[in-house]
Write a protein that binds this DNA or RNA. Sequence first.
DNA 1: ATGCGTCTCGTACGCCGTACCAGTTAGTAC
DNA 2: GTACTAACTGGTACGGCGTACGAGACGCAT
Lengths: 276, 276
Amino acid sequence: MDTEDEDLWVPFLAARPRDRKAERLRAHLREDERRGQRHPPRRAAALSRDEIVRTAIKVADAEGADAVSMRRIARELNAGTMSLYWHIVSKEELLDLMLDAVQGDWETPEPSGDWRRDTQDLARGMRASLHEHPWLMDFIGGRPPAGPKSLRNLERTLGFFDGLNLDMRMAIDIAATLGTYVMGAVLREVQEHNSQSYTEQILADMTEAEREKVFGEFTERVRATGRYPHLAELLGAGYDPDGAETRDERFEFGLDCLLDGIAARIAGHPPATSAG
Amino acid sequence: MDTEDEDLWVPFLAARPRDRKAERLRAHLREDERRGQRHPPRRAAALSRDEIVRTAIKVADAEGADAVSMRRIARELNAGTMSLYWHIVSKEELLDLMLDAVQGDWETPEPSGDWRRDTQDLARGMRASLHEHPWLMDFIGGRPPAGPKSLRNLERTLGFFDGLNLDMRMAIDIAATLGTYVMGAVLREVQEHNSQSYTEQILADMTEAEREKVFGEFTERVRATGRYPHLAELLGAGYDPDGAETRDERFEFGLDCLLDGIAARIAGHPPATSAG
DNA sequence: ATGCGTCTCGTACGCCGTACCAGTTAGTAC
DNA sequence: GTACTAACTGGTACGGCGTACGAGACGCAT
């Protein structure tokens, strides 16, 4: 059911200041086509917004956020670099589009009536999807969720609490808090994942003896200060905080804590009849 | 109590792969000075690591993450660009150092014995400190917390649960979950803050009538689809999700939910005696 | 005076985003 | 048919970036 025709970007939020000059020049992108359609396209376009965005995502998936450059994407499409700028106002806009496109992937399920199960599914879906595109975490800071896919997800999420007679404010707080937790968790997990990649790369060049030496020395230094008893215990126990299993369980742990707290607040809320 | 002499960077995590060649060349930064100190410095250094990091933070605070470039920081210090590279291996390392330096700011208080109050203080302190350096959210993805300040904060946090006889695993899960929540919350808040700045900038150029027209049209489009009842209600109510007061209350709401869930798990834990 | 580690920094290379604009294509108007 | 024009493509060039390289400047040890 791909009714993607509607491009409901929240006004202003989508356009960064430095884009605005260009935006005015390329008004055709938003205005012309929509209502007046004064002319049919005079020429079959070789490039398209969607194609560009998809290619950018493919590159980012394969080689990370740093690999996404206008020149690189143009090369990937066998096009001139500047051709992209007919379809996309700036790289900033491209990043916004990439972000919103990915959010389309974690389509939330229709509300089942069991809000706890629904929100759990949503959270797990978000997490899984974000892990497929870890480069997203490099962009997301300072990039407001203003696109149509984000709006749809917000709409669906609010729907989870329909039968509970929560006031709007509380529903939004809950939805925001859940999103917050998932974002934070994935942020941390991506951090840890990257560390591990680097670590493994370096460890591969070392002998077993060298590895133990480095870790041993570090542990010893921590212990020697006497000021890090908990860390020393941790290091001594050989606890691996970054195992995949540990990671999943920790995510569920935090999610359960959060949902317990939310459930208590929902239960304490005026049921049925009405609420200010 | 600035006992900053110890630079306990977690081995490997601190050094990104592409830094390693340079790292080997500039071994003096880590090795020489530490133990052998074969020579006293032959010359009074005009620059220092700390000074560079402080300047970078100052620039980032004033003008955002994008303004931090090696050339810019050198100019700020009246130094040649390449002079920085004697003290710092790469820009990547500089970012790591900036991140760890900021984490030194939110010094966690000594444990008071009331874990809930302590963790609340910690969370609020983290949040306040992160808001003072919103550029941090642009870097933090993919940058592991491996520096001495992060380690100290982890150590302190684990200390909050000392009297409760939690096993190490649970204590870490709790600490990680709290950090996760705060990071996620600040991430979202910084996003919203940035959106608002942009929005205000744009609104300033418009007349009141234009503003209402744009918002009205957007609201109408949302309503017209019929598929966004909750959003339509939201927009119709003129609810402002980004007010500062709303933001604070939402943070506390989520934090309370989380702490309630954690408290329940701590209460249900084997008290005293022992635990695996 | 010589040597040599410590530290500074000018030059240059290959990336980046994108402003500017000239060129190509294919419908429409005559 | 020819002329016109909107819809697109893409080459050139500019100023910025990170940083490799290596030539110096400085001051202690000899």
